[in-house]
Amino acid sequence: MEGSRLISKKKCSPTDRPSLRLCKCALKHGPISVVYKVSTNSNGSVFFKKLTSRGPVDKKVIQWLLSLHQIGLDVNRTDRSLEFYEKKENLSKLWDILCLCLDRPRCRLCQGMSDLCSPMIVLLEDEADSFFCFERLMRRLRGNFRSTGRSVGVEAQLTYLSSITQIIDPKLHQHLDKLGGGDYLCAIRMLMVQFRREFSFCGSLYLWEMIWALEYDPDLFHVYEAHQCGSEKVEVSNGKPKSMSQCGKYERQNMRNGGKSTEGRLPISVFLVASVLKDKSSKLMTEARGLDDVVKILNDMSGNLDAKKTCSGAIKIHKKYLRKAKK
């Protein structure tokens, strides 16, 4: 792993990222052609000459380089409407933190993560704090991004969303299903980037805090610490009974309902989406005549949703769902 040592010394910055072409080339044809290609391309060439002069390039290294490239693409397109990111050094922070996460076990970069990382950098001055907050957030959300090649983790939540809507608003579900939207793929963005695109910047942060408060469980800390990133949903088994009053409202509702059921482990975000859909229900029922209209209505609400209203809606739907699902 000569190569990876060389890379890890290299400081990442948006300006000197290697060209993806070279990475792909190395993957396909081996190092010789890389050296050749490097000589014909100025972008990242010095870096690659150094890299390949040490021998064959490890596949892991190439994967790493591809991810680096993707980070570069995403970083330059994240929250660009914010004045904050007009400063190059702030962009670099975002870049650095995403790069750092690549070194974590079982951590693969996916589009959308920059949306989740960005607020941490805006809010926390210290880069280390931003990193650890983002890293813990990803422990919570990693499952959404996990891909098996056939499906993406978040799709499991869409299945629950479907059953929730069937119970809460059967007419809407029928309508969506008829239009070919019964898979709820149109709602994927809300779950994937935790409503960053549907709410304003401040609105989504407000929403995030509400989510964390509502889902709060004193055991969560141990759960996240005990399991390295990428672990599956875990049952807390440290035996001591926890007091209900310590938990967030959403968690309390789950506990009262037996807590350990599958639904009990559902994140509140699924109910938040259900709440947004319910809010748009009449519009969807009357105006959507095709899947295109559905996507348009959902995508057009960017930035003008009310976080508080959506949360209380989600809590109501959750209550109703638990009650009806029991029957």
């Binding site: 693409l73 995403d74 397109r77 994240t78 929250d79 660009r80 409407s81 589009q111 959308g112 920059s114 949306d115 793929l185 149109c186 994927i188 963005r189 994937m192 980037v193 695109r197 295109d292 996507v295 348009k296 995508n299």
Partner: peptide, 13 residues
């Protein structure tokens, strides 16, 4: 405009 990366799909008429 500076656009954010598309997540899933988007749609316009």
């Amino acid at each position: 405009d500076d656009l954010s990366p598309t997540i899933g799909v988007d749609f316009k008429v």
